[in-house]
Simulated assay, not measured.
Amino acid sequence: MGSTSSGRQADARDRDDEGRARNARPRDGLGRPLPYGSEGVARQPEGVVRAPEASVAEAQELLDAGKPFHAHEVFEDAWKSGPDEERQLWRGLAQLAVGLTHAARGNVTGGARLLRRGAGAVAEWASATGRQRPYGMDLTGVTAWALELAAAVEQDGESIDAGARAPRLRGPEAS
């Protein structure tokens, strides 16, 4: 185990030499922490700069695989590295992925709230910019999906299968 300059055990506390959290704990497919030593799902690398089309394609693959937590990381990278005028779009998409994550974890209230918040951000961005299909995405369809899922999650009050309920970012005609 390594120690920091203050003598604390960095590895025992899951911290780097500067004391920042390393988040090295294994996680399941929905981003929930697993016990140390467990085999988790590979984490999505953070801080990757992708072309917008690549972000959409990678996020869709992760959503389809039932990994909305990981898709959220892709959207968050786009939000942080993209142009300022697109921040609301990518942040809204990240909120939708987190809402789906919470709904799959059984957090009905949080899931529905984040799905609605993300849908609102995406719809507001689309309205303000006049862009309904940026990078091939169907924002009208994505917004409708989120609002319908939020209502269904609240009505059923149960966790959902994230992969089975994943949105089609580019609509039904595109994969």
Rank of each mutant, 00 (worst) to 15 (best):
G2H: 10
S5G: 13
R8M: 01
A10T: 04
D11P: 02
R13G: 09
R13T: 09
D17K: 11
D17Y: 10
E18K: 15
R20E: 02
A21H: 14
A24Y: 11
P26M: 10
G31W: 09
G37S: 12
S38Y: 05
E46W: 04
V49L: 03
V49I: 09
R50H: 15
R50G: 10
P52N: 10
E53P: 00
E53M: 01
S55W: 01
S55G: 14
V56P: 00
A57M: 04
E58I: 10
Q60K: 03
L62K: 05
D64G: 07
G66Q: 00
K67L: 01
P68V: 00
F75Q: 06
W79S: 08
W79D: 07
S81Q: 13
G82M: 01
P83E: 15
D84F: 09
A97C: 15
A97F: 10
T101V: 14
A104C: 06
R105I: 07
N107I: 01
R116K: 13
G120M: 10
A123D: 15
A126M: 11
A126E: 02
S127M: 12
A128M: 07
G130R: 13
L139G: 06
L139I: 12
T140P: 05
G141C: 07
T143A: 14
A144M: 05
W145R: 09
A146K: 00
L147H: 06
V153K: 09
I160T: 04
G163H: 00
G163T: 03
R165H: 08
A166R: 00
P167Q: 05
L169Y: 03
E173H: 11
A174E: 13
S175M: 01
